[in-house]
Design a protein around this nucleic acid. Structure first.
Length: 570
RNA sequence: UGGGGCGUCGUUCAACUGGCAGGACCCAGGACUUUGGAUCCUGUUAUGAAGGUUCGAUUCCUUCCGCCCCAGCCA
């Protein structure tokens, strides 16, 4: 292996290669182990790409395993959503869809084995007492009164726990390890708790459920996972997983921990995302402002852009907060290459071309994508009355503003030069219409006399335009770090009240009338937009039939030099 | 205070394991442009601190400082 190949390798890849070289494993088998208690977010996408990515890279396999050990929080609907998201991201677990709940009987038998070996016991302490006996960070814990109870007695009690003889919370099965361990996870951790809850897969078959800590390592072991990749907070749990594996004498996976992904201007914990969903701060898990994969999908992000983003983010052990701008950069880069250009006027201002005959129409060929000649051209209708963007006209032009103003000439994209000759105001003094003239000699956008214009603006023929609703999204939080809240307030105080702006009555070029849900476009000079999948017509795309309602979500704006200049001027 | 981790440009990842600290994003200039887009060029800024070993330290040693995680019958 050349030095070039070695360089740039992350620490997980180095570890895997060491293992392969040293013969600790002769292949690579990983797993992605979500709990079906919420939807996947971009942080999970990092884990997915590490788990599936390393399997791919080393010619191995990656399992999908639902860690469903807590029936009070888990639902089948989340299982389905998670599967959909992983597929969408572009990864495939083939037929290896597993559940920790598949192993309940096996885990139970192992627990029995540990009890018989004197390594586990039934404890009668309730939750409060268990906590009290555990000690603190600096003081050792105390032994449970039942710690040395005979194995036969524990066995009997454990069987009766399973049989449903005891009320919820009255007993637990605990591993007998070390109440004085500086690692609290080793102070006789709970293996089983009594919980009368219907499980999404096993129904009412069980009234005792294994804890995650008891189930996880053995699940990996059962699946012969070689490399169990997880996030940093489980580092302290590794000695516990290894204890179970050792005591049971079963296949030892190697756990390697990496830092989770954080993004500026957002929160990334399922608990908080759930809270926003439940409190109606957002419209659901797939609200386009959410960092969930379903939200990002609806927003218009591509799986390719997300994978590229993750690649650039890298893998390390230091806590990280990635600039949201990097994500934006990656979508723009991807969509620039693939999204067809169209013209859409979000805040319409009417233009009447005085020297263009009433009732006359013509069509122009507009380039679909200057980055991709094979994308071809389309027809765009033109007529005497147009809509242009309000922002593309200034009654009193600011310095360095070189769009339209009375007396100025600009180019209408793919059409003609247009000169503003006057304006019409309403009773409140607001400009409601521009009077203009066009130059017939500039058809297609070039002046034969060689004269130049400083700006090219987009437009839509009023008579041919289709109406749509367009949603403009901004950061969900107004601070880069939502936790940076005033004294006494929490992260919710930093919710951005302007994270959603809904614009009705937007005017789109007619080619957009048949846009299908999920289709992405560049609205020229504005940004990338995605036809919404929720509103409009279920399944068959938008803009047809009785339910006609076109709606687009802004994925990301184009980089905006003018906005920068304005900002600097302030 | 116990244990486990982590400290390299503003952000993130590198530096072939002792040899000129590099890339990407961001930012600032400029070129080009029928998108103030894209593209291209240029530029600013970093090894947490102090000692030590060495011809030479981001890398090895010592001490210190800072940040994150752990006291669920959550995962």
């Amino acid at each position: 292996m050349s030095t070039e190949e070695r360089a740039g390798r992350n620490f997980i890849e180095e570890a895997i290669e060491e293992d392969l070289k040293a013969g600790r494993f002769d292949h690579v088998h990983t797993r992605f182990p979500p709990e079906p208690n919420g939807c996947l977010h971009i942080g999970h996408a990092k884990a997915i790409s590490i788990d599936f990515g390393n399997a791919q890279k080393y010619g191995g396999k990656c399992n999908l395993r639902f860690d469903d050990t807590n029936p009070t929080k888990e639902e089948t609907s989340y299982v389905d959503a998670i599967k959909q998201d992983i597929k969408w991201l572009g990864f495939d677990w083939e037929d290896r869809e597993f559940y920790a709940s598949n192993y309940f009987e096996r885990l139970y038998q192992w627990a029995v084995q540990l009890i018989k070996a004197g390594k586990a016991y039934v404890c009668d302490l309730d939750a409060d007492l268990v906590r009290e006996y555990r000690g603190t960070l600096t003081e050792p814990g105390r032994e449970s009164p039942n710690r040395w109870r005979a194995a036969e007695e524990s066995l009997d009690l454990f069987e009766r726990m399973r049989a449903g003889e005891f009320p919820d919370g009255s007993h637990t099965l605990r591993a007998r390890i070390d109440m004085a361990s500086p690692n609290l996870n080793l102070r006789d951790p709970v293996m089983y708790r009594i919980m009368r809850a219907r499980h999404h897969r096993t129904g009412d078959a069980w009234c005792i459920y294994p804890t995650y800590d008891y189930a996880h390592g053995q699940s990996d072991s059962l699946e012969k996972i070689t490399h169990s990749l997880c996030s940093l907070e489980f580092e302290d749990h590794r000695p516990l997983y290894e204890w179970y594996i050792r005591e049971l004498g079963i296949f030892p996976s190697r756990q390697i921990e990496f830092a989770r992904l954080n993004l500026t201007y957002t929160v990334m914990s399922k608990r908080r995302l759930l809270e926003m969903v439940e409190q109606g701060v957002v419209r659901g898990w797939d609200d386009p402002r959410m960092p969930t994969l379903s939200g990002m999908r609806r927003r218009g992000f591509t799986p390719e852009a997300i994978r590229e983003f993750l690649k650039r983010v890298g893998v390390a052990k230091a806590d990280t907060v990635i600039d949201y701008e990097l994500l934006e950069h990656c979508v723009r880069e991807d969509l620039n290459k693939r999204a067809p250009r169209v013209m859409a006027v979000l805040r319409p201002l009417k233009v009447v071309i005085e020297n263009y005959a009433e009732g006359q129409t013509e069509e122009f060929d507009a380039v679909n994508n200057p980055e991709d000649p094979s994308a071809g051209t389309r027809k765009v209708p033109f007529s005497r009355e147009l809509y242009i963007e309000r922002d593309d006209f200034m009654e009193v032009p600011a310095p360095k503003y070189y769009r339209l103003s009375v007396g100025r000439e600009v180019r209408l994209r793919a059409a003609y030069f247009l000169k503003c000759t006057g304006l019409v105001k309403d009773s409140r003094g607001e400009v409601v219409e521009l009077r203009c003239t066009y130059d017939p000699a500039t058809r297609g956008g070039d002046a034969l006399d060689g004269r130049k214009v400083k700006a090219t603006i987009h437009w839509v023929s009023a008579a041919h335009a289709v109406d749509a609703e367009v949603r403009l999204y901004d950061h969900l939080f107004s601070k880069t770090n939502p936790d940076d809240a005033p004294p006494g307030l929490d992260w919710k105080a930093n919710l951005n009240p302007k994270s959603l702006a809904t614009l009705a009555g937007c005017k789109l070029e007619p080619s957009l009338a048949g846009a299908k849900a999920g289709e992405r476009f560049q609205f020229e000079r504005l940004g990338y937009f995605c036809a919404d999948t929720e509103e409009g017509i279920r399944g068959q795309g938008l803009g047809v039939g009785e339910n006609r309602k076109l709606a687009f979500n802004r994925t990301v704006s184009l980089r905006d030099e003018w906005a920068r200049i304005q900002k600097q001027a302030k």
